[in-house]
Design a protein around this nucleic acid. Structure first.
Length: 469
RNA sequence: GGCGGGGUAGCCAAGUGGUAAGGCAGGGCUCUGCAAAAGCCCCAUUUCGUCGGUUCGAUUCCGACCCUCGCCUCCA
C-alpha cells in the first residue's frame, strides 16, 4: 500500500502510520458521551477520524476502527434522572441521534461501536488485575489508581504531576480525601444515592466504572493489548489518555498505543464552544440556516486538524459556494464523458490533492489542489476534451471527493416543497407572459421562503438559499 | 505558575532561505426583461505580530518582546 504519514502526539513528529501486525490498522477512537446532541465541535473529531480511515483505505490499507459510546457516567446518570427515564433508554435515544447526525455528515460506520455498559465484567477484571499488582487500591468502596506506581505517568502530555496548578479545576471532589494522592484517579466508583438504580456488583460492593477505565478495557479486549492508533479530541490528552496508558500498561506490561492522534478544538467566535457562552451549535442549527451536513463537513475539514479551527457562518457560506463550483465542474465532466468509464483507476489531475492528504491529512493544501485542478480541468474541457479524458478526470475527481467524503452541491439533490415549486412555476408563467412585476413579486416571495430561483439556458432551477436563519 | 498551539490580504487558510497556493467576499466587463447564476479579467511587489541578529538575500533560521487561544483531572 501507499505510505500514509501522520503526526504522533507522543513523539511530536510526523511519522509513517503502520499496522503493527502488517494486516489491518487497529484504530481506537474515543467516541461521544451520549447525554445530549453532539455539537459541531464533537463532530470535528469524528469527521477527521473518518477522513483518516478513508485515506488509509484509499492508500490500500485495511482498518479495524473501534469507536466507543460512553453510556454511563455522571452526565448520563444525571440526564436520565432529569428526563425520568431509565439510563439505557435515555442513552439509546441520544445514541440514535448521534448515529443519525453522523450518517448525515458522511461518517462511515466504525467496525465496532462498543458501549461501556456492555463491558462491565471486563472492566472489573481489569481493576482486579491492577489491585493485585499494587497499582490500585480500594478506599471507601471506590478503587483508585496509584499514580506514583507508574513511573511513566505524564509522559504523553509532558505534564509533571507536581506542576499541576493548585485547585486549577476549582472542583474538589467530595471523596478526594479518600485518595492517597490528589493525582490518583478513580477506576471504580462506589455507589452513591444519586446514582439510584445505576450500579453493578463488584468485589468492592455496588458501584460503576470510572470514565477512563472503559476505553482501556474495550480497546484491549477488542483490538488487543497493543493497538496501532488511538485518537480523540486534544482535550483528552490529559487526563483521559494519560490515564488509559497508566491503566493499560500497568496491567499488560506492554506498550498500549503505537501512534497517538489528536484533533484540535473547533472554536466559535475564537472561543471554545460552551453552553455558557451560547456559542454551541448542533447539526440542527446548521440545517436551520439552510446549510447541508456536507457544507459543515467541508468546513470541518477546511483547516488542518492540528490547528484550532474557527467556525463561522461566513465560512459555511464559502463552503456552500465552493461546493456549487465543484458541482458545475463535475456536471460538465459527466456531460463530456458521455457515459464512458475510465479504463484505469488513477487520480488524473487530482493527484496533488491526494498527495496532500497522505501527508498528515493536509486538508487545506488538498482543497487548494482540488480547486486548482478542477478549474484547470474545466477550462480544458470547454476548449475541447475527448470523452476518454473527461472520463479519466471524472474518475479522479470522484475518487478525491470520495476520500474527503464531501460531494459537490447539486440543486437536484435538494427536496423542493410543493408550495415553493408552485411559486416558481407561477413565476415562470408570468415571465412567459412578460408580466415582469408579477414575476419579480413571486421571486421575492420565493426568497422569503428561503429559496433562490436561477434562470439558465435550459430553464429555471431552484436553489436553497444559504445563510438564512 | 506549568505545558502546548497560533499571529500571512475584508474573512477562512496554505507555503518556502531567493522573493507570497486555494476558497469566500469585493471590483470591472459579457450575458440577462431586471436580478441572480454563469463566463472572462482584476484583487498582498517598502508585504507575512513587533524589534534585533545571521545571510548576497528571511515571511521562512536564531534571540527577545507583544497579543491571542487551549489544557492543567466534566470536556471531541
Amino acid at each position: 500500500m501507499e505510505e500514509v504519514r501522520l503526526f504522533d502526539t507522543a513523539t511530536r513528529a510526523v511519522k509513517p502510520l503502520t499496522a503493527g501486525d502488517g494486516q489491518g490498522l487497529k484504530f481506537y477512537a474515543c467516541g461521544p458521551t451520549v447525554y445530549g446532541p453532539a455539537h459541531i465541535g464533537n463532530f470535528r473529531s469524528f469527521v477527521v477520524q473518518d477522513l483518516l480511515v478513508r485515506v488509509w483505505e484509499a492508500a490500500g490499507g485495511k482498518v479495524k476502527h473501534v469507536r466507543n459510546l460512553t453510556d454511563v457516567d455522571d452526565k448520563t446518570i444525571k440526564g436520565a434522572r432529569e428526563a425520568k427515564q431509565k439510563l439505557g433508554d435515555f442513552t439509546q435515544g441520544w445514541t440514535d441521534r448521534f448515529w443519525k447526525d453522523g450518517e448525515a455528515l458522511g461518517l462511515k460506520k466504525p467496525t465496532k461501536e462498543p458501549k461501556a455498559t456492555e463491558f462491565i465484567p471486563k472492566q472489573i477484571a481489569l481493576v482486579e488485575r491492577l489491585v493485585k499488582s499494587g497499582h490500585a487500591y480500594e478506599s471507601g468502596g471506590s478503587v483508585y489508581y496509584r499514580v506514583k506506581s507508574f513511573p511513566n505517568y505524564g509522559k504523553l502530555s509532558r505534564l509533571d504531576e507536581r506542576e499541576l496548578k493548585e485547585g486549577a479545576s476549582g472542583r474538589a471532589d467530595a471523596d478526594e480525601y479518600a485518595r492517597e494522592q490528589v493525582a490518583d484517579f478513580v477506576l471504580w466508583k462506589g455507589h452513591k444515592p444519586e446514582d439510584g438504580e445505576v450500579f453493578w456488583e463488584s468485589p468492592w460492593g455496588k458501584g460503576r466504572p470510572g470514565w477512563h477505565l472503559e476505553c482501556s478495557a474495550m480497546a484491549m479486549e477488542i483490538l488487543g493489548e497493543t493497538i496501532d492508533l488511538h485518537g480523540g479530541g486534544a482535550d483528552l490528552i490529559f487526563p483521559h489518555h494519560e490515564n488509559e496508558i497508566a491503566q493499560s500498561e500497568a496491567a499488560s506490561g506492554k506498550a498500549f498505543v503505537r501512534h497517538w492522534f489528536h484533533v484540535s478544538h473547533l472554536l466559535v467566535e475564537n472561543r471554545k464552544m460552551s453552553k455558557s457562552l451560547g456559542n454551541l451549535y448542533t447539526l440542527e442549527d446548521v440545517a436551520k440556516r439552510g446549510y447541508e451536513p456536507a457544507d459543515l463537513r467541508l468546513v470541518l475539514l477546511a483547516g488542518h486538524y492540528r490547528q484550532p479551527l474557527n467556525f463561522s457562518w461566513d465560512t459555511m457560506l464559502a463552503a456552500r459556494h465552493g461546493r456549487e463550483k465543484l458541482g458545475r465542474v463535475h456536471a460538465g465532466l459527466v456531460e463530456t464523458a458521455a457515459g464512458r468509464k475510465s479504463a484505469r483507476a488513477g487520480w488524473g489531475s487530482f493527484g496533488p490533492a491526494w498527495e496532500a492528504l497522505r501527508e498528515d491529512l493536509e486538508t487545506p493544501k488538498a482543497w487548494g489542489a482540488l480547486y486548482t485542478a478542477a478549474a484547470e480541468v474545466d477550462r480544458k474541457r470547454r476548449q475541447g476534451m475527448k470523452a476518454e479524458e473527461a472520463a479519466e478526470e471524472l474518475a479522479g475527481m470522484d475518487r478525491i471527493l470520495g476520500v474527503l467524503g464531501v460531494g459537490p452541491y447539486f440543486a437536484k439533490d435538494v427536496e423542493i416543497p410543493p408550495g415553493v415549486q408552485k411559486l416558481a412555476e407561477a413565476r415562470e408563467a408570468a415571465r412567459k407572459a412578460k408580466e415582469w412585476k408579477e414575476s419579480d413579486r413571486l421571486r421575492d416571495e420565493l426568497a422569503k421562503a428561503g429559496w433562490e430561483v436561477r434562470d439558465g439556458v435550459g430553464g429555471w432551477r431552484l436553489v436553497r438559499k444559504a445563510g438564512v436563519a
